[in-house]
Nucleic acid binder design. Structure first.
Length: 1031
RNA sequence: GGGCGAUUAGCUCAGCUGGUUAGAGCGCGUCUCUGAUAAGGACGAGGUCCCUGGUUCGAGUCCAGGAUCGCCCA
């Protein structure tokens, strides 16, 4: 039902958070979200994938950021006619969840968990992971993120796990799933390896001890290799030294001793002017035997404790002699393989030394660093120790420094499909564009195999069963397959139940490999696993693959963006998303990273309670390009309320106030006589609509939102300001125009600020239960008038110039002036003429006089228009500029304004220049009140005769009476009896302009015999007494 | 050490394919309007567009090098 006046009165000091709560209630009552989807049944889908958050912590500002950007384009596409399903999802597995439970139970290690019982531990995890799901859902609703939370997917569901198993089987069948022995980043606290994208999340600046260590050359007393390391604990298992074959090494004399190191680094390490001798190539050092720093482990084979050659050695830092511990570095490990070194790993899974490490046995490796240095010092092997600041990877969840550690793990051989990954990325549209071939593309190019397995408890079990002798390996793709193999399939596919599942295969007993898989693989399976595809809902999956749009923060480049791309490329040969929007970090108002420890975290609820969801959304959408990151604060959001929402609300409130006062109906635009300024406002609406569609289609809320804000600004500060009288008088054209524009704005901005726009729409129209069930506006070419927009901008400039001129002579606008003189030729004169009344009113002048030439006001200066002449004359531009400068300016100006051409001679040739080729600037003459801008200028006749003065006084009186009305608490529509007294000159002026006074102040009568009581005012130093009484 | 991004007014940000007076909002100062009134308008102060070179008739914009900050990776 379309609403007609009287409208609901608008509270102009409306608190928006309260308004939003009302709107939320309305949405619930009317089931608007689901209705908006039902209405698009059968329409072309726009597919959105929800990147599942983990609900075991409270949602923060950065979560709100991605959630509103997920929302805005879903809403926009829905209004544009697409069917947009929005299935929620929750990431349930993995270390973060285990950690929370461990913390709660006071556990320190995996043994604690084993002792406690895996079944009970996982039950706790299941409970813990959704601990904050209610708050998440509440926040999701409060910020206006329309998401189907009732029908969300959970990665812990058996159906989800089964789909993940299926995906692994596909990979297994392609021969891409393998067990490998490699050095991996390993968290000793969590007791598990991490994938490279997990490692990527945890780099931190730290200060580690670094040590320069002597490795005594066997058989040469007093001669040592000088090695350098930032991980002293690995010296316990030193197996060899590595030098670069092509680097020059020298012997440096330091006191009594001789140190061998790279020539290029000798001075930096040992000090300037160090004596060196005997330069040799690294290649010549191969095989040199030396004394290991610690004697505990000796058996590294034939090449143990000798110098080896390696290309990875650099002379960027250290000494050019690299200490090699086979088990603790990727390069070291490969070098060890090449030389056949025995792998000796004296470090246990919990990060402590085993009994092979002599006195350090049982110590955590990092903690042992200082004692190890001390032992070296005592043994005379430490040359120097110092602090070294560098960034080092830490466990992304428990913050323990990682160690690189040789162990076996299951991998997905993504490197074999690298070309396909790159090709899949080519098809993706990234916002911002540079991520595609920058951060993400470079990462793909350096792709390494995906370390898939985790030796943990709460996660998707690796579905691989193996015979005890390792001969037979089966990857299981489903419950059904497991049953077919003769196993008892447990209800719950998690550990520990799945660990008990065994079956016979080729006469051998098959037991499950106890590992879990990386949770990122879980999330990468979401396109099909959310539907339990391919086991069911196959057609749904087909329809909703790939996603048109996904959106997450930049830190997901190596997280979800990668897992989605990799899984679907391996399975389907393409990316599972077509467009991705990357959002930046949220910093505090000072540009510092928000962190609990700093106490500078802005809690979303605070912002919502203070300014509301629209304000927060508007801030995120329009304050800047979202990928650059935000300097976020309550104040910053407050500013966005004032600038946009408050302005919109005031304009809307103004219209409702006078629509109700005047009892005007809602006439259609076709039924009223539009004025030029109406046509201008409507044209601006079309222009804005065009921009909004063009920008939102390109996932750009920033420019779209700013364009809408500019329209609102124009409506408020120009259209309404210039049309006030028509609203007071109830002019139907004005109301029809403003209503049309406000409804247009409501629809244009509905996806961005869904609450306030729905309130406005509901009151001014209400034909639909909600603005969100409307179609997005289309620009109407019939209402667009570009010429009119140009003309209006010219008039506004002229008004600005005139007001500036007034300001300079300090003449109040209230004081009428005789004449404004406007310099304008041809088209410009026509433009201003069209809105002359407006100019007269704004400047409060009696008449406008146009002059084409500037003789009265100043002199023209001519300048070449570089933009048009530059391409034409190129390097001859200096001559052109000189020639133009030499023209008779006034004559040329006259010619050009009449559409003629002027001629200049350049390089002996004659060239014709038109109006577009020459810019005319006005230089004002001394002694005139002239304001100029380019070729435009406005001057004021500032002589004030008595007539004008009396008129000015009358206006002052009106002003004073209005104040008195307000003080008396009268309503804007109240009629009054007015009585005035005071200075005779003032009263004379009033008498002369009595009708004007009556009209302006809504007085039905005026008594000039003097007010006994009432307000006292002063007009140009003369007394005025005002009595006001309501009729 | 490498990759990517950023650097424009006191603050937060615009500035399209290079075009000669670099813009907006906030804040500040001075006025002003008032039938939207704890809003609105005008004017003003405030910029070596990070630095150095280069290309060009012309560079905030393009190129190279450097500085600083951020993120990512070794």
């Amino acid at each position: 039902m379309r609403r007609v006046p009287p409208y609901e009165p608008v509270d102009r000091s409306q608190a928006f958070p309260a308004l939003e709560v009302e709107i939320l209630e309305r949405w619930r009552e009317r089931d608007v979200f689901h209705e908006s989807i039902r209405r698009r049944e059968g329409a072309e889908p726009f597919v959105f994938y929800e990147g599942p958050p983990t609900a075991n912590g409270r949602p923060g500002s950065h979560h709100v950021l991605s959630r509103v950007f997920k929302d805005v384009f879903s809403r926009y596409r829905t209004m544009r006619g697409r069917l947009v399903h929005r299935k929620g999802g929750w990431d349930c597995h993995g270390l973060p969840v285990e950690l929370e439970v461990e913390k709660k139970l006071g556990f320190q290690s995996k043994e604690d968990i084993e002792r406690y019982g895996v079944a009970e531990f996982n039950a706790q995890c299941r409970e813990s992971v959704l601990r904050y799901i209610d708050e998440w859902n509440e926040l999701t609703e409060r910020i206006g993120f329309w998401l189907d939370t009732d029908d969300a997917y959970y990665t812990l569901d058996d159906s989800y796990i089964e789909s993940v198993w299926w995906s692994l089987k596909q990979v297994f069948d392609q021969g891409l799933l393998y067990e490998g022995h490699k050095v991996v980043p390993y968290c000793p606290r969590c007791g598990t390896a991490l994938s490279s994208h997990e490692v990527a999340q945890g780099y931190k600046e730290v200060v580690d001890p670094s040590a320069y260590v002597r490795f005594g050359v066997r058989g040469e007393e007093g001669v040592s290799f000088l090695g350098w390391t930032t991980t002293p604990w690995t010296l316990v298992s030193n197996a060899a030294l590595a030098v670069h074959p092509d680097v020059t090494y020298v012997r440096a004399q330091v006191g009594e001793e001789t140190l061998i190191l790279a020539e290029a680094l000798a001075e930096r390490v040992l000090g300037e002017g160090i004596e060196t001798s005997d330069p040799v190539k690294g290649a010549d050092l191969e095989g040199t035997a030396y004394e290991p720093p610690f004697p505990y482990i000796a058996d590294y084979g034939e090449h143990g404790h000798t110098v080896l050659l390696a290309d990875f050695v650099t002379t960027d830092d250290g000494t050019g002699v690299v200490h090699t511990a086979v088990a603790f570095g990727e390069d070291d490990f490969r070098l060890g393989e090449a030389y056949g070194l025995e792998v000796q790993n004296p470090v246990l899974g919990d990060g402590t030394f085993d009994e092979r490490a002599g006195p350090f046995a049982g110590r955590g490796v990092k903690e042992a660093d200082p004692d190890i240095l001390e032992a070296l010092r005592d043994a005379g092997r430490l040359y120097r120790a110092e602090d070294y600041e560098h960034s080092y990877p830490h466990c992304w969840r428990c913050e323990t420094p990682l160690i690189y550690y040789a162990k076996s793990s299951w991998y997905v051989r993504t490197t074999e499909r690298k070309e396909e990954l790159l090709a899949a990325n080519e098809a993706v549209e990234w916002h911002p564009g540079h991520i595609k071939h920058g951060r993400f593309g470079k990462w793909l190019e350096n792709n390494v195999d995906w370390a898939l397995s985790r030796e943990r408890y709460w996660g998707t079990p690796l579905p691989i069963w193996r015979s005890d002798d390792g001969e037979e390996v089966v990857c299981v793709s489903s419950r059904a397959e497991l049953a077919e193999l003769g196993a008892d399939v447990p209800e719950d596919l998690h550990r520990p139940f799945v660990d008990d599942v065994t079956f016979e295969h080729n006469g051998k007993t098959m037991r499950r490999v106890p590992d879990l898989i990386d949770v990122w693989w879980d999330s990468g399976c979401m396109p099909f696993a959310q539907w339990h595809a391919p086991f069911e809902n196959g057609e749904k999956f087909e329809q909703r693959f790939p996603a048109d749009y996904i959106c997450e923060a930049l830190d997901q480049t190596r997280g979800w963006f990668y897992s989605l791309l990799a899984v679907s490329t391996l399975l389907y040969g393409r990316a599972s998303f077509e467009t991705v929007l990357c959002l930046g970090l949220i910093l505090d108002g000072e540009g510092q990273k928000m962190s609990k420890s700093k106490g500078n975290v802005v809690v979303p609820w605070d912002v919502l309670d203070t300014h509301g969801a629209d304000a927060l959304r508007w801030y995120y959408f329009t304050s800047k390009q979202p990928w650059d990151g935000y300097r976020f604060s309550l104040e910053a959001v407050g500013e966005s309320v004032r600038q946009f929402i408050k302005t919109l609300w005031n304009t809307y409130g103004f219209m409702v106030l006078y629509a109700n006062v005047n009892d005007v109906g809602t006439a259609a635009l076709e039924e009223v006589d539009l004025t030029d300024i109406d046509r201008w406002a409507l044209s601006r609406l079309q222009e804005t609509t065009e921009i909004a569609i063009e920008r939102l289609d390109d996932y750009d809320t920033t420019v779209a939102g700013r364009a809408i804000a500019a329209l609102v600004e124009d409506l408020s500060n120009w259209y309404v300001r210039r049309s006030r009288r028509r609203f007071w008088d109830g002019d139907p054209a004005a109301f029809a125009t403003l209503r049309e524009c406000l409804l247009g704005v409501a629809k244009l901005a509905a996806p961005l600020t869904p609450f306030v726009t729905d309130a406005i729409y509901g009151n001014l129209d209400g034909a639909e239960p909600s603005v969100h069930l409307c179609d997005y506006p289309e620009p109407d070419p019939a209402l667009r008038d570009v010429g009119l927009e140009w003309q209006m901008s010219l008039v506004r400039e002229a008004v600005g110039l005139g007001l500036a001129a007034r300001a300079h002579v300090k003449l109040k606008v209230r004081q009428p002036l005789r004449e404004a003189i406007v310099v304008a030729g041809g088209r410009e004169r026509e433009a201003i003429g069209r809105f002359e009344g407006l100019l007269l009113e704004e400047l409060n002048v009696k008449s406008v006089r146009y002059v084409s030439e500037a003789d009265e006001l100043g002199r023209f200066e001519l300048k070449p228009n570089y933009r048009s002449l530059g391409p034409r004359f190129g390097s001859q531009m200096p001559q052109v500029a000189a020639a133009v400068g030499g023209l008779d300016a006034d004559a040329a100006a006259r010619t050009l304004r009449d559409g003629g051409e002027v001629h200049v001679a350049i390089g002996g040739h004659d060239h014709a220049l038109g109006a577009d080729d020459i810019q005319m600037a006005l230089r004002p003459l001394e002694g005139y009140e002239v304001e100029r801008s380019g070729s435009h200028a406005v001057a004021l006749d500032v002589t004030i005769d008595d007539t004008l003065r009396r008129e000015g006084v009358a206006r002052e009186v009106v002003h004073a009476v209005q104040n008195a009305r307000k003080q008396a608490g009268l309503d804007v529509a109240d009629r009054i009896d007015l009585s005035l007294g005071g200075d005779a000159a003032v009263l004379a002026a009033v008498r002369e302009h009595e009708d004007y006074l009556l009209g302006e102040t809504l007085a039905v009568s005026v008594d000039l015999s003097g007010a006994e009581t009432g307000a006292r005012a002063e007009i140009e130093g003369l007394e005025l007494l005002i009595g006001v009484s309501r009729v």
